[in-house]
């Protein structure tokens, strides 16, 4: 916490707080105290690789403000993603990476817990904290006003490479609930997924931090990487994409990097399939874009579960968790899996 409290020697000296927006959709300071009516200088530093803001709201209005921001749609950018709402108290503009803004305001005179949140689309679910004005803080592990990861003390980003933290990032590493040939990928906007090169299929997706590789890397590999976030989708149907009828012969052929993200290449019954997974921008979620260029046969793709998430598909028919497409439809199509708000 970079909280500096100066005793009141008159009203001149404001209370200064620095909050860093960092990778994994996090504020490094998830709560701080302020005296009712005190002058506060809140400095937001964006150390992440994407844009963030910070909006202080009236008590209990965090989600409402974040959702109102999302509803701005095309107007959002112009408004710094700050909705016209009485619930908004103070707000920074949207900060590009490596930029800073100081917000000067007087803390409310009414004691209470005043949330702050990043209202950039999709960030609000994870990226928030609270200003405690004239009320005492509970124990961090029990504080419902801070994100789950912060409550669990899992916000530390360890440095495992010479380049520090970055997204996109991928590891081929032993993962839970996958074959030993698993691939873990961190996308921008705190999105992550596990893709199985042993079975040529997406296994699960989560949001928040990426993985803790240390159980594998600390020694000879006798461990599994840990998922540092909340799983919101996990494949419930075995099997990869099917092309034509009969048993699928699968062959993993590697991937190419597209803006740092892997586009997987595999062959199903001698037909080439390309799959690129990218983050959704308006909500927490991912889009799986498929290309099956040289194929006339019908295609079926297990995509379930589709009921507990916001599922969309650009083509084909969805039934019982299986998307079926004609060969023509399957030449280029996408499905998206979004976390329901």
């Amino acid at each position: 916490m970079s909280l500096v409290c100066t005793p009141t020697l008159g009203q001149a000296e404001p209370q200064r707080v620095t909050i860093n927006a960092r990778a994994g959709l996090q504020y490094d300071v998830v709560r701080f105290d302020a005296k009712p009516g005190a002058q506060v200088e809140l400095k937001l530093v964006n150390t992440d690789d994407m844009a963030h803001n910070l909006v202080l709201t009236k008590p209990g209005q965090r989600s409402a403000v974040a959702n109102a921001a999302l509803a701005l749609g095309a107007e959002g950018d112009a408004k710094n993603w700050v909705p016209d709402s009485d619930a908004v108290l103070f707000a920074t503009p949207v900060l590009k990476p490596d930029s800073t803004h100081v917000l000067k305001f007087a803390a409310p005179k009414t004691p209470g817990v005043y949330p702050y949140v990043c209202t950039f689309p999709g960030h609000g679910l994870l990226m928030y904290g609270a200003m405690y004005v004239g009320v005492s803080m509970p124990e961090l592990a029990k504080d419902k006003n801070v994100p789950e990861l912060a409550r669990q003390g899992k916000t530390e980003q360890k440095q495992y490479h010479a380049w520090g933290n970055k997204r996109p990032l991928m590891y081929r590493i032993f993962m839970p609930d996958a074959s030993p040939a698993a691939i873990a990928v961190a996308l921008k906007h705190g999105q992550n997924y596990c893709w199985d090169a042993g079975q040529c299929r997406l296994r699960y997706a989560w949001y928040g931090g990426f993985v803790d590789p240390w159980p594998v890397w600390r020694g000879n590999g006798n461990g599994l990487a840990k998922v540092l976030g909340t799983k919101y989708w996990e494949s419930e149907l075995p099997g990869s994409i099917q092309i034509g009828s009969g048993k699928s012969e699968l062959r993993f052929l590697g991937y190419r990097k597209v803006d740092g993200q892997p586009e997987f290449h595999y062959r199903v019954n001698n037909v080439d399939v390309f799959e690129l997974i990218t983050p959704l921008h308006s909500v927490i979620g991912i889009r799986r874009s498929f290309r099956i260029p040289d194929n006339t046969k019908p295609v079926s793709l297990p995509v379930g579960p589709t009921s507990r998430v916001a599922f969309e598909h650009s083509a084909g028919k969805l039934k019982n968790g299986i998307l079926t497409l004609t060969g023509k439809e399957a030449a280029a199509f996408s499905v998206s899996i979004g976390l329901i708000k």
């Binding site: 590697g254 190419r256 990097k257």
Partner: peptide
């Protein structure tokens, strides 16, 4: 910086046992 990672052969098994270097 590399952009293509092509599998030449993965025609062998893995149990996930750490010693399978």
């Amino acid at each position: 910086e590399a952009d293509q990672y092509q599998t030449i052969s993965d025609g062998f098994g893995m149990t996930g046992n750490y010693h399978e270097f």
